[in-house]
Simulated assay, not measured.
Amino acid sequence: MSTTTFGPDTGELTLHTGVAGKAARTGHSLTIGFTDWSATVDVDAPSQVRVRVVVDSLQVISGEGGLTPMSAPERGVARGNAVKSLKADEFAEITFVSTSVAADGDGYRIDGTLTIAGRSREHSVVVAPSGSGADRRVAGETTVRQTDFGIKQFSTMMGALKVADEVTVRLDLSVPG
C-alpha cells in the first residue's frame, strides 16, 4: 500500500466564516488558515483518508466586510476567540477519518467521521482532481455547522453580531507527479 501525505507545504486548508445577527454588516467574514495539518491518503486505492489539524495553529488570514478594514490587532483578537470557541485547551486536534471513498461524477465523495471539540459526527467531503503531470491538483469543499459539534459561535453586542453557524472548509492540494 502506497500512501501520500499532504500538509501546508503542498497545499492549503482554509476555513471561511460568515457573520450573522442584526449588526452583521459591521462584522468581518474571516478566512482562517492552519500552519500545522496533515492529510494522509492511500494512493493505490483511495479508501483510507485521514486528516489531522492542530487547532492552535489557526491563523486569521483576512477579514472581509465590516465597517473598517480588519487590522492586525483585530486578527489577533479574532484568532484568540476562534481558538477559545474550538476549545483548543481541551481538544488540541480536529480529525477526519474516512469510512468510505466512492467515485462521484468527476471526483470522489469521502464519507467519514469528523471530530471537533471532542464531538464526532458522520460527515462527507467531495473532492475533484484537475490538471496533469506536475500540475495535478485536488480541491474540495464542505460545510460544517458549528452547533453540530457543541461549538458556541463567538458573539458580541449582546448577540447582535456573531459568527454564522455554518462555516465552509476548503482544501486545495498539489499532487506529486
Rank of each mutant, 00 (worst) to 15 (best):
F34M: 01
S57C: 02
D44L: 12
H16L: 13
I94M: 03
G66C: 08
G80K: 10
S29W: 05
P69V: 14
T35E: 15
S57D: 04
T17Y: 06
D104W: 07
I116H: 07
F91A: 08
S130G: 10
D104M: 03
R145S: 15
Q59K: 15
L114I: 00
D104Q: 13
T40M: 13
A20M: 07
L30M: 01
A134F: 09
A88W: 04
E64A: 15
R119Q: 14
R52H: 13
P46F: 00
V125K: 00
T147M: 12
L58N: 02
I32L: 04
G18I: 06
D106Y: 02
L86I: 10
T14M: 06
A117N: 01
T40I: 14
V83K: 09
R137D: 05
Q48Y: 14
F96V: 00
D36S: 15
G66D: 04
V127W: 00
R50S: 14
G133W: 04
T115H: 07
G107V: 04
E93V: 06
G65T: 04
F96Y: 10
D89T: 11
A128L: 09
Y108E: 11
G80N: 11
A102K: 12
L114V: 01
G65I: 06
G140A: 09
F91H: 14
D89E: 14
G66H: 12
T40F: 11
P129V: 00
V49A: 11
L30N: 04
M70D: 11
A128S: 14
D89I: 05
F91R: 11
R121H: 02
I110N: 02
D106R: 07
I110A: 03
E74P: 00
G76C: 09
G105Y: 08
M70T: 11
V97M: 11
S124H: 10
S130P: 07
T14G: 03
D135E: 07
V125R: 01
T147K: 13
R52W: 11
T14F: 01
R79P: 05
M70K: 12
E122A: 10
I94L: 03
N81T: 09
T99F: 05
V127N: 00
A39C: 14
L86S: 03
G118R: 02
A82W: 00
S130C: 06
S120Y: 02
S38G: 09
R121S: 00
V83Y: 03
G105L: 00
T147R: 12
I110L: 02
R52I: 10
D104F: 13
S57T: 05
V97Y: 06
V60W: 09
V60D: 04
G133L: 01
I94W: 05
G18L: 03
S124L: 01
S100A: 15
K22D: 08
A117P: 02
D44R: 13
R79E: 13
G105N: 08
S29E: 06
A72Y: 10
T17A: 07
D104G: 08
A88Y: 04
E141F: 09
V77Y: 13
G65E: 01
G66Q: 10
I94H: 08
R136G: 02
A39M: 15
V126W: 11
L58Y: 03
G118D: 05
D36M: 14
D135M: 12
